[in-house]
Write a protein that binds this DNA or RNA. Structure first.
Lengths: 120, 120
DNA sequence: TACCGACCTAGAGCAGCTTCAGGTCAAGTG
DNA sequence: CACTTGACCTGAAGCTGCTCTAGGTCGGTA
């Protein structure tokens, strides 16, 4: 009786967590004698990271690649870092999109203000 | 012999444009006597807006709703404005996610620097 | 006339969840 | 002690939003 809480904590749905584990997108999660998942702090750290990566547009394929590197241990730490670095750059791209969209919306909304009169 | 260029201009794929038109997500696009689409400035303006909205996470259902309002004319202008306003707020949410992810990545990258030594 | 490139449509395929059907188990209730 | 309830489990089907494929049309060049 844990998964619902933990899911909420890291802003993933219960189903998404199960899906991620099954697909190897996150490292596998220990089970109790009842067959239910027992989340370790490490698990939570992972899920938190994955949630953040997903929310900012990382494809699951890349997340899986990252998880695969993790399973291969410290030898692959440098490569893992590279994946994160890459995503950091991707964030800038998204930032640009956000800014562009914001400007466009402001423009459109100004037009609506003209049409509608500035009541709202 | 137009769609490929126009698609590139508004950063949508040719297939996406066709899909949007067919699904009523954008207003329909005029055809020449050859059956090919002839994009009006208005069409381009729409596609540009849709591209920006999509890139920042608006679901197609909402885009379609917006297009439906447009087809209903000026009477629905206020409602259309509301949709855009709503998305403007959604942008802030995304901004927060971006910022949070950025902080998390910085933290993780710092840890990797410790493990790997600061070579990179 | 034959081919090439850019367009067209309908429909299949794919990613990333999300929902559903059917089942287990532990705890509380009459 | 049987029974219900609630949180978990699994495998598989369903949904969204494209993306790709197959098969075809049309206008221009060799």
């Amino acid at each position: 009786m844990r998964i619902a809480e933990e899911a909420a904590k890291c802003s993933l749905s219960v189903d998404t967590i199960r899906y991620y584990e099954k697909a190897g997108i996150c490292p596998s999660i220990e089970r109790g004698p009842d067959g239910n998942r027992r989340f370790s702090p490490e698990n939570l750290d992972w899920l938190n990271l994955l949630a953040a990566l997903r929310e900012t547009g990382m494809p699951t394929k890349k997340m899986k690649y990252f998880a695969d590197l993790y399973r291969q241990g410290d030898a692959k730490a440098a490569e893992r870092k590279k994946v994160l670095k890459q995503h950091e750059m991707h964030l800038d791209l998204q930032q640009a999109r956000l800014t562009k969209c914001k400007a466009l919306l402001r423009h459109k909304l100004a037009l609506y203000d003209q049409i509608l009169g500035v009541k709202t």
